[in-house]
Design a protein around this nucleic acid. Structure first.
Lengths: 97, 97
DNA sequence: TTGATAGGCAAGTGTTCACTTGCCTATCGT
DNA sequence: ACGATAGGCAAGTGAACACTTGCCTATCAA
């Protein structure tokens, strides 16, 4: 639902996670943890990030694939494209002269 | 800030208000109240909607102009265009062959 | 098999948020 | 001036949310 997408984007940490995954797709939880803590200082536990990833996944913004004991996370920008055309003109922002 | 834009969009009522204002720009608080209650049934007080409008305004998504005892509200989609290009490719979604 | 790595589940806590309630100010019509 | 209309301010309430804490499961290397 669009509802979940907006709620998922409401949190700054989740937006940072999306930033991370756009930079490098297919990261594991621990990789994301390390990179987020490195770029922001501590204050973020592994469980917190895990819960954020769950929110992003249930919003359809992140897909996961298990492989052994690893779980890789990939971004899916498709929900984003759909929610913005809600208020923006579907095309041609300067088509009306 | 982008922070405020995302938080403003997180609430379904505020998104409905944006829908209303996109349909008909320059409405007053009472007009928005009437139309929202008409389309959704009660459960929304005037003050609630007023507070939502304040959030949208401080996020830059709505601008206001006073005129006598009326206060008209207009949408401003500019903040929307900026926040989405954060994760979407700025242009050409299929430019990489 | 043992230990270490990668991740998950669930109850508890504190803060933020949406909404209400009650009253107050300002503008317009008569 | 009076009442009615349009809107604002601020304290209080209940629910949602982010985050922690503690423990548990599964996979891999030795």
């Amino acid at each position: 639902m669009a509802e979940d997408v907006f709620k998922a984007l409401a949190d700054p940490t989740r937006r940072r996670i999306l930033d991370e995954l756009v930079q490098r797709d297919g990261q594991t939880l621990f990789e994301i943890c390390a990179r987020l803590v490195a770029g922001r200082g501590p204050g973020l536990s592994r469980q917190a990030i895990s819960q954020h990833l769950a929110v992003l996944e249930s919003a359809g913004l992140v897909t996961t694939r298990r492989q052994g004991r690893y779980k890789f996370h990939d971004v899916n920008t498709e929900p984003l494209e759909r929610i913005v055309t809600r208020w923006l003109r579907p095309d041609a922002p300067e088509s009306t002269p």
